[in-house]
């Protein structure tokens, strides 16, 4: 080996390492690389998956203003958050490719809480991933895949606080929540010795926490995420949930093949680690530890949405009205 050659090899290695590091650091908090499907899978003709594939877009309803889950960046219009990454991972299973370049195949629609059900029922969106809590009343109107995330009541403290780790640590401390709310009631049940102070809004509670007149604020963690997001240096989440709000993916009622497909995909990303990666990329910074993924609930859909009548013209010109059968009870 000449002197020149001896220098050449380490230099090459160094250059490659730098290039690799540069490629690896992506500013967007989306899940990058890994587990992508290079080619699109084929689906049975007429299935929702095949229809989405042929129209070339998955239409997703999500929140545009929920820190950590779905936020639209006003400068580049890019959506970030755990909900949006779950949607990307589902889109990858339909179109192939990777989560990094899948946005060209997704049409994002804002889905504010009161509009979510309607957006599904009138066919505006293919699915909704928007902090959508699964409950029995909603199950009569739409179907849910998942749950893919369990939200719930948590505690917000000052970033410097180390004394509060669980709900029982609230005993003997001043805790703020909203007047006569369910979270307030839950604090009273789980920490009966807490000095519970109730005001009209969480914004007032946050002020009281910042000026030190209360030690903690407690309510649903996604509400608290919003406050921590605005003030990450002085506030933090304890990250120890003490109630369950299962979030599901809202789908049109009765499309059991599509629901099975989404559920299968969720179980797949649970197993290959992409779910955990998406969680960490979006929610770890708020103090939430990576949980074990919630088991998918393949409940029997009751299929009780009132079927729409379809008008067909029979031979001889007589018009008969038949009711479209909804057979969503079969798996």
């Amino acid at each position: 080996m000449t002197r020149r050659q001896r220098l050449w090899l380490p230099a090459m290695v160094l250059v490659m390492a730098v290039v690799a590091a540069a490629c690896g650091s992506d500013d967007e908090p989306t899940v990058s690389g890994g587990g992508g499907q290079p080619t699109a899978p084929t689906f049975p003709a007429g299935s929702t998956m095949a229809n989405i594939q042929s129209k070339g877009k998955l239409v997703v309803g999500t929140k545009f203003d929920q820190p950590g889950l779905g936020v639209k960046n006003p400068t580049n219009n890019k959506l970030t958050g755990f909900d949006t990454d779950i949607a990307r991972l589902i889109a990858v299973a339909i179109f192939g490719g990777t989560v990094d370049d899948i946005d060209s195949k997704i049409e994002w629609k804002e889905a504010p809480t009161p509009q979510r059900q309607l957006l599904i029922q009138n066919g505006t969106v293919d699915l909704i991933v928007a902090t959508y809590t699964i409950n029995d009343e909603r199950k009569t109107q739409i179907d849910f895949a998942g749950p893919y995330f369990i939200a719930g009541q948590d505690i917000m403290v000052k970033a410097t606080d180390t004394s509060i780790k669980t709900v029982t640590d609230l005993n003997g401390k001043k805790v703020c929540s909203v007047l006569d709310s369910t979270p307030a009631k839950r604090v009273r049940e789980k920490a009966p010795q807490a000095d519970l102070i109730e005001f009209a809004s969480y914004a007032l509670c946050k002020d009281e926490l910042l000026n030190g007149r209360v030690a903690a604020v407690s309510t649903d963690n996604i509400i608290l995420l919003g406050f921590v997001d605005k003030d990450p240096t002085t506030l933090k989440l304890v990250g120890n949930r003490f109630s369950d709000e299962p979030y599901g993916i809202g789908l049109e009622k009765g499309d059991s093949a599509f629901r099975d497909f989404v559920n299968n995909r969720l179980e797949q990303i649970y197993q290959n680690g992409e779910w955990a990666k998406a969680f960490d990329a979006n929610l770890k910074k708020y103090g939430l530890a990576t949980p074990t993924p919630p088991p998918v609930d393949r409940y029997q859909s009751t299929g009780e949405v009132v079927p729409a009548p379809t008008v067909t013209t029979a031979a001889g010109g007589a018009t008969t009205t038949t009711v479209a059968a909804t057979t969503s009870t079969t798996p």
Binding site: L179, D180, I197, E198, F199, A200
Partner: peptide, 18 residues
Amino acid sequence: ATIIFVANLGRTADAVAV
């Protein structure tokens, strides 16, 4: 005074109602 969470008769009615 309910606004600053000080007990009074009106607050009692709120709590009992809920």
